[in-house]
Nucleic acid binder design. Structure first.
Length: 857
RNA sequence: GCCCGAGUGGCGGAAUGGUAGACGCAGCGGAUUCAAAAUCCGCCGGUAGCAAUACCGUGGGGGUUCGAGUCCCCCCUCGGGCACCA
């Protein structure tokens, strides 16, 4: 072999690793363990560059930690339940199971050539009955502990297809297939009691030192702890059984500015009025013609309906406020009712102006000169709570105080006057896990006419999904299956019916990390294995999972701990979290003549020239749309397999790790991949040249050795801090130094061996090959990581830039430990400084030792 | 609408509050070659200048500081999430 041939090298070393069992994780109590996990993929059918990046990042860590002497667990599995499989089945008359397992095989075949250090013996898919059976067993434990319960909840209902829709299946308020206006409908559903853990989930965030602040911040806001006042307005002449409206507010200090009360269309009072009044019924029906997502609710036009009822203000019984039914108030939040204070809430102000309701400020800015009060046409005045304001209609307390103090005064005043009480609330709602779909984990309960809801017996698990189902009509195939739902009541033995709801796929992904510690155990976990391998030392995945998946997993870890399946330390299952950016690519777009709709072209259909793009087919110019997430619908996907075939896995890995910092989005460019390949070829050539050198000393030995230790230090720091792009920049620099060095063969060989080691987490195949050429012992995989000699890192002189008034004007080179006053003297003698001073004395002279000097004149 | 990020040369990006543009790509010039590919060497933010050098420059506008890409305030644009996409 006379040139770098990735296909030969990569197959050779993958076979060697397999034979050596290099990546099989073994519980070895004598060694420290390291569990590195990337978020497992959904088996969509093809791996994409995002996967390559995600697993390359994890593989660097796994291989590095292995070289550092850890017993490493680096598993892989499949998040295999979910809607796309059912959609595919509908589209192609196939079966979700076949589609899913075929995809898994395809994707595994695509992943394997990348040479990741994955322990494939632990692989599983969440749709394996062995996995979901353990999940059912866990569900029964949770049920027994009172952590799962049933209640009514709203879903998106497609009235034409007679089926429940996911939020993404609701497009502009219409069902994606039928096009019918979607309605909100209530169903009885299963819920996990995650909200009981609100305080714990919130407080424990403070201990997650190695999580990104942005993720913790998003979770804090999601949990949404608030303190406020809960109280009741008494209803004037309410319908039978309704004499009050309970309200929760975080701004009780604005109570004297209340101008209306709003209730949800699903509020019991609204429901009552709906029965009595056709107009109310029509309005409520209209409100329900909308999806359930918060985004849709918040962006929809705010509509209200005057119920005709009034309530009394708690502090002035002569003051009556109208009660509106409003489409933006959700029954699931708080009490399903609010009071509106238009002066201090933008949404309430919009509402008040629309329905001509009064606006009364309760406070104004301390400096009020330029302030246009909302009652005079200004904007709603909503200062942050810690900011002092001047109260006009406040409660006991100073006229000028902060919002926080005003709120505290209001709560105290209300409590002493018997109007409500201060309470703490959380925005976090319980987790609804019921799905009216086939391709998910069946909920293992039985409905019996006599016994009600009865848990299935554990010895009957797993409750398997039936295979003989079709998707030719909409709706849940489990519901219409001729026999599947028929069973005997586990309690009384009489004929009963199975639950046909399946579990949210977030349940599957909320404990897979624990299952990887003992994937074949006949209980959900094996405590000895879980105690050894947990926690996940480094978890890596997309920022899009910052809230739901991670919060649900944190909840599950707590629940599993309380059921004895995980140790206490695993209540927070992920010690460190890293969120990587997406892989993006430019979109090549032309416009179809007939109707002006865009046509998207694959990158391989396009030639690039001078920053412009032309169709290979007919030379037409193509519009280049700035990068977007690689997506099938935009055709801007690059197939990793094609890259591997033309350049090799190491090139693909090197490229996705270089250039962009891992937390940021990375743009895939053909030229970048080309450059990565060239560089690897250069390393291969350089190594083969060095391998042929005779031993012996050379002039540059000392310099090269220094550079080698510097490289060890810098690259190690780069890997430790997830600065892989920076580590790679250092590797480029070290390669250049090595190529230009006039050191002798012995020093060069030592340096080249270190280069192979330092590159091995990123380009493991090439590194093995280089290691072998240089006569390295055994495999470089798992070979002890090189250590930098601290003494070799110290420089004895340092170049100090000299700034004059903050602008760099000159520099001096001095001994590293030269005293400050000696530096000052040298600086004042500097020609540029002399010129700037023009005979005078500096106003100020700042010397930052080892860094910089600034002369202020 | 609400929450969380990001924005630096032609491009990807580097920079504990301390020399803005490391490293790479593209481009330009040169070596090698019959020629090309490959490889190697050099230049490479903008404006002015033969040059030394000067001024401008990190999305926009203010501020703090001896010194701001970095910290604070306001704004713009793009991206992620919003509880049934995964």
């Amino acid at each position: 072999m006379s040139r770098y041939d990735a296909s030969v090298i990569e197959q050779k070393w993958q076979a060697a690793w397999n034979e050596a069992g290099s990546f099989t994780a073994t519980r070895d109590e004598s060694k420290p363990k390291y569990y590195v996990l990337e978020m497992f993929p959904y088996p969509s059918g093809r791996i994409h560059m995002g996967h390559v990046r995600n697993y390359s990042l994890g593989d660097v860590i796994a291989r590095y930690k292995s070289s550092c002497g850890f017993s490493v667990l680096h598993p892989m599995g499949w998040d295999a339940f979910g809607m796309p499989a059912e959609n595919a089945a509908m589209a192609s008359n196939g079966h979700p199971k076949d589609w899913t397992y075929t995809n898994i095989e395809t994707m595994k075949d695509q992943l394997r050539p990348l040479g990741f250090s994955i322990d494939w013996t632990r692989e599983f898919a969440t749709c394996d009955p062995e996995y979901y059976g353990q999940q059912q067993s866990m569900f029964l434990d949770f049920l027994e502990k009172g952590m799962v319960y049933r209640k009514a909840a709203t879903v998106n209902w497609d009235p034409v297809d007679m089926t429940v829709l996911a939020n993404e299946q609701v497009i502009d308020g219409k069902g994606w297939r039928s096009g019918a206006a979607v309605e909100r409908r209530e169903l009885t559903q299963w819920f996990f009691n995650i909200s009981d853990y609100s305080e714990d989930l919130l407080n424990a965030l403070d201990g997650l030192d190695d999580w990104p602040d942005k993720v913790k911040s998003m979770q804090r806001n999601w949990i949404g702890k608030s303190t406020g006042l809960q109280f009741a307005f008494s209803l004037v002449d309410g319908p039978h059984g309704h004499d009050r409206v309970d309200v929760y507010t975080t701004r009780p200090d604005t109570l004297m500015g209340a101008s209306f009360v709003g209730i949800s269309p699903d509020h019991p009072l609204a429901r009552q009025l709906e029965r009595e009044n056709e107009d109310v019924a029509a309005f409520c029906a209209k409100c329900r013609q909308m999806g359930t997502s918060e985004e849709e609710l918040e962006t929809a036009e705010k509509l209200g309906f005057d119920s005709g009822l009034t309530v009394l203000h708690p502090f002035d019984t002569a003051w009556e406020l109208p009660v509106y039914i409003a489409n933006f108030i959700l029954m699931d939040y708080g009490t399903g009712a609010i009071f509106g204070c238009p002066a201090h809430d933008a949404r309430d102000l919009e509402f008040a102006r629309k329905y001509d309701l009064p606006v009364n400020s309760t406070f104004e800015p301390v400096e009020a000169e330029d302030h246009v009060a909302p009652e005079n046409g200004g904007e709603a005045y909503v200062p942050p709570k810690p900011q002092p304001v001047r109260y006009i209609r406040g409660f006991a307390g100073d006229e000028i105080q902060t919002g926080d103090a005003g709120i505290a005064s209001a709560v105290a005043f209300c409590e002493t006057n018997g109007v409500g009480q201060g309470i703490t609330k959380y925005r976090l709602r319980d987790w609804g896990l019921s799905r009216q779909r086939y391709w998910g984990c069946p909920i293992p309960v039985v409905h019996c006419e006599d016994c009600g809801v009865v848990p299935e017996k554990k010895e009957n698990l797993p409750i398997r999904l039936p295979d003989d189902v079709t998707f030719d009509v909409p709706g849940n195939p489990l519901d219409r299956h001729p026999s599947w739902r028929n069973c005997d009541c586990p309690r009384c033995g009489k004929p009963a019916r199975r639950e046909t709801d399946t579990m949210d796929t977030f349940v599957d992904s909320s404990w897979y990390f624990a299952r990887f510690t003992a994937p074949r155990a006949d209980t959900p976990t094996d405590r000895a294995e879980a105690d050894y391998w947990m926690n996940v030392d480094q978890y890596i995945g997309g920022i899009e999972h910052a809230i739901l998946h991670l919060l649900y997993s944190r909840f599950f870890a707590r629940a599993m701990n309380e059921c004895g399946m995980l140790p206490d330390k695993a209540r927070e299952p992920f010690d460190a979290l890293f969120t990587q950016g997406m892989v993006t690519h430019a979109i090549y777009q032309t416009t179809r003549e007939q109707d002006g709709r865009p046509v998207y072209h694959y990158p391989e259909e396009v030639d690039l020239k001078d920053g412009k793009a032309f169709l290979k087919e007919d030379g037409r110019e193509v519009q280049i749309v700035p990068s977007a997430k690689m997506s099938k619908s935009k055709n801007n996907v690059v197939d990793p397999l094609a890259i591997i075939e033309s350049y090799g896995a190491d090139t693909a890995r090197w490229f996705v790790l270089s250039d962009s910092p891992p937390e940021r989005d990375v743009e895939w460019t053909a030229s970048g991949a080309d450059a990565a390949f060239k560089h690897l070829g250069r390393v291969w050539r350089l190594t083969s040249e060095i391998a042929a050198l005779d031993d012996g000393a050379g002039k540059g030995d000392a310099d090269l050795t220094r550079a080698m230790h510097r490289a060890i230090h810098d690259v190690t720091m780069g890997i430790e801090s997830f600065g892989f792009n920076a580590a790679i920049a250092k590797l480029y620099a070290f390669t250049n130094t090595l190529a230009k060095s006039d050191a002798g063969g012995a020093a060069k060989r030592a340096a080249a061996k270190v280069l192979a080691q330092l590159m091995s987490p990123m380009t493991p195949h090439l590194s093995e090959e280089c290691w072998q050429m240089l006569g390295g012992e055994g495999l470089v995989t798992g070979h002890p990581w090189p250590k930098a000699d601290e003494a070799m890192l110290v420089e004895d002189t340092v170049t100090l830039p000299i700034q004059i008034n903050g602008k760099r004007r000159s520099e001096i080179t001095v001994a590293k430990d030269l005293p400050k006053d000696a530096v000052e003297k040298l600086v004042l003698d500097d020609a540029a400084v002399q010129k700037a001073l023009d005979g005078g004395a500096p106003k100020k002279l700042i010397v930052v030792p080892g860094r910089i000097v600034n002369v202020v004149v």
